[in-house]
Design a protein around this nucleic acid. Structure first.
Lengths: 231, 231
DNA sequence: TACCTAAAATTCGTATACGATTTTGTATTC
DNA sequence: GAATACAAAATCGTATACGAATTTTAGGTA
């Protein structure tokens, strides 16, 4: 009865989906210890399929695993967050660029509508709703991407961030207004039939500016000295 | 006796490593049916860890899996090849760019040496050796990349290509000489302290030119019309 | 109290076993 | 001869069971 039982797949699939959902919605937050026996009992299956599911989640980066010790929900250290955001900025930029020549008027209209919702959402600000809309917006820009591998990687990145966001909520309110405006520009750029390179650059900048805003706010400056790029 | 037994990890790890190695070196070529019982017997373990290993390989994209039917080594259709190459060109470009400010004189010297080996290798041409050297070359340029996620994705892409290459050998001999020259330019660019954007562009172009050469040779033109980027 | 040791409890890792599903082979019918 | 029906074999999926490794707890000693 837990978690929107689909009942469709094998027990292994069921366990995979259930644990993944719990991670993404925050029921299992980062650091949470995933004990095979407990989960198995919870789901009413034996440990074998649960173990398999957890190993798969490990391969996707949602779970970290240690031999003879067990699995925990993958952590939230700021460095990881930065890595993921940076990777996403690259992949989303590429995905948007590859999509852009294939985006039709209907898609643009939908994206515009979502962005207007975001704008409306700026008053009595609801970060969760805003974040969801943001994903919808970019999802529309991606969905025409002719390269499914890139899309898959983007989705995995989102999943990771969702897992983090569900626990520690990372959001820079001041950034929201700016973000909506950047969306406008991005749409205009695509609509004008700009070269893919320009779209890519703009889309990447959009994401990495969000990251910068976050860094500026928290003062996080993880390990590597990769900030000396503007001498 | 099978496949450089490390003996270190659990049976599950052992199975994972063994099957992966067989896929990468071509012992199991694309389409090969991975029967749990057979593999288990081969490795002297039971089916449970083998199954787990295969599911993990599926998550990495090396194996495709169908419920109640079984697993096969992931296929080689040209579309996949194109997707992977395109994704790699993006990720390698970014990885090289992020590395470039951190690449020291020693690294550059090593890379130069490898490229000279490649040049020497152009006479009495050995594609396998050339390919390995090529990976070494780019590996040197990457290894300073401060973002391990990107590196991980690049390595996964390489693994996929290795699996394909081991069966159908995809190589455009005429391209080799050109490639070595491009390496020279790339090294010079990095050495001159060029902006990261320039390095990224050059590195990406390098990979996608290779892809174009392959496409021109085979006439493969899968699905999407993503070639209209140079109007 | 702090620290070391040993036993108990927990949890993992995998072999085995068996039911469920799919595939293959064979006979029957038109 | 082709198509269908059915039986046999192969293979998958998972519950159960038990040994192995780790963590926790308890007890004793300086």
């Amino acid at each position: 009865m837990g978690s929107t039982m689909t009942g469709t797949g094998s027990k292994s699939e069921q366990a995979y989906a259930a644990v993944k959902e719990r991670i993404l919605d925050g029921s299992y937050s980062p650091g949470y210890r995933l004990v095979l026996g407990k989960i198995a009992e919870d789901l009413g299956v034996s440990v074998v399929p649960v173990r398999e599911a957890i190993r798969r989640l490990e391969a996707e980066g949602l779970v970290s695993f240690e031999r003879n010790v067990g699995a925990t929900v993958a952590g939230i250290d700021p460095t990881e967050y930065l890595y993921t955001m940076q990777t996403l900025s690259i992949l989303e930029g590429a995905a948007t660029a590859l999509s852009s020549p294939l985006i039709g008027a209907a898609d643009l209209a939908r994206a515009r509508a979502v962005n207007e919702e975001m704008r409306a959402c700026l008053e009595d600000f609801d970060p969760v709703r805003f974040t969801r809309l943001n994903q919808d917006f970019h999802g529309i820009l991606f969905e025409n991407c002719p390269n499914p591998h890139i899309l898959d990687l983007v989705h995995r990145g989102w999943d990771r961030l969702a897992s983090l966001r569900a626990s520690t909520f990372r959001f820079v309110p001041r950034r929201a207004r700016e973000s909506v405006r950047e969306h406008d520009s991005l749409l205009q750029l695509i609509d004008s039939g700009a070269p893919a390179d320009d779209v890519e650059h703009a889309a990447r900048l959009h994401r990495s500016t969000t990251l910068d805003a976050y860094l500026a706010l928290t003062g996080t400056d993880p390990g590597a000295d990769d900030s000396k790029e503007t001498p």
